[in-house]
Amino acid sequence: MIHDIAVIGAGMAGASIAAELAPHARVLLLEAEDAPGYHATGRSAAFWEECYGGPGVVPLTRASGAYLGDHGFLTPRGALYIGRAEDAAAMAEFRASYEGTGVRIERLAPASLGAMIPQIRPEWSEALHQPACADIDVAGLHQHYLAIARRNCAEVVTRARVAGLAREGGAWTITSARGETWRARTIVNAAGAWADEIAVVAGAAPIGIAPFRRTVAVLRVDPPAPADLPLVLDINGGFYFKPDAGRLWLSPHDEIPSEPCDAAPEELDVAIAIDRFQSVTDWRIAAVERRWAGLRSFAPDRMPVYGFDPQAEGFFWFAGQGGFGIQTAPAAARLGAQLLLDLAADAMTAGIDATAYSPARFAAALQSA
């Protein structure tokens, strides 16, 4: 049997685009691990924040919000970008960069900041409030997309690490590391940190999608973190933290270059996170209860890559989604399916400029590779 489309990678990217494609085509979804979502999807800090990813990602984030909310995957949280007096210029520049995007950002008075974060140190007096931020039920959203794909007869195969891709007669032969083979007319490269490796296996030029390690630690703090605490982010990108059942999820907002791998946290990164956290708040850390790391993968311009490869026939990129791939999943998957199947834009994607995310923007680099 020849499938119409084989999607490589069953994390959020692969599961979501498979769900969008399955009603229209015969879809095969291949996952290298024992279960979908083992890597980046299963290790997300789980928030939807309109500014996350930068102004170029805002259209995808905002277009995804209604779908996420209507299906019950969002819980209101709110976000605060904070800084000290010397960060006022950075605050103003940040706010100005989102003018005209539709993102609502409000300057917060120091007294209001102290009320929202009771333990904050007084020198952290600058704040911007982003009220639309919400927590995402990542596991629920991922299972939602897998269920849609399966309901529409997509074939989901785990422990299917792709080792070979060869195109002949208008179709790809896909060979797994265990020697299994499948045939498909089109490949969707949703392999996350492994996206460039899959491109090379297919004979396509790598774009330069690079994985970076991100660390998260769960802290038991005294007093317990209030449930209504917002997501708190350093305007200079040095940390972020959010509450969870009285605990705090804390990250040093690190981006450590990494090979594609099963990422593990480094003690130094956890220590850096704690040091930064203690310079911001008076919370007493009673224990570090958990820690983990995941990989976030970026194209050279830090924008996602959606579209057919300009040189490799039947090879579609759906990768480079950094840390924003979950919050943009509904619109990105809808847009990707429309591009792949040559469907018209709908109400969700009508305001999105697909050319901003096309792999064609790397054409000159690809031709010289």
Rank of each mutant, 00 (worst) to 15 (best):
A32H: 01
A177Y: 04
H253Y: 15
I274N: 01
H24I: 01
G208F: 11
I82N: 03
F241W: 05
R62A: 08
T355F: 07
A85T: 14
P36L: 10
H3S: 08
I207E: 07
A6Q: 01
R291K: 15
G238P: 06
G14Q: 09
A32L: 03
F315V: 09
V232C: 03
L68K: 10
A115D: 14
R183E: 15
R220K: 14
T281Y: 07
A134Q: 04
N236H: 15
R284H: 10
Q327H: 03
L146T: 08
P23T: 09
A271I: 04
L165R: 06
T61W: 00
D269R: 15
A10Y: 10
I285P: 00
G56Y: 02
D222L: 10
A35S: 08
I272T: 14
H253G: 02
E33N: 12
Y145T: 02
L113T: 03
W182V: 03
P230M: 12
V218H: 14
F212T: 09
D269I: 08
A25D: 09
F362Y: 15
A32Q: 15
L128C: 06
D137V: 11
M12E: 09
I117N: 00
E259D: 14
V58Q: 04
G336V: 07
A363D: 06
G323F: 14
G169N: 15
A177Q: 11
V201F: 08
I274Q: 03
I272A: 06
V232G: 02
L30I: 05
P211W: 11
G351W: 01
D34I: 03
G114F: 02
G140K: 04
S176R: 02
A184P: 06
F315T: 09
A365H: 15
V218Y: 12
K242N: 06
G246Q: 05
A163E: 13
V57H: 00
V270H: 06
A85D: 15
L165G: 04
I148W: 05
A115F: 01
A35T: 08
A132F: 01
S358D: 09
R107E: 15
R334T: 14
A115K: 12
G314L: 06
G164H: 13
C133D: 13
I326F: 10
A134F: 11
G9A: 05
V232H: 00
G320C: 10
A18G: 06
G307T: 09
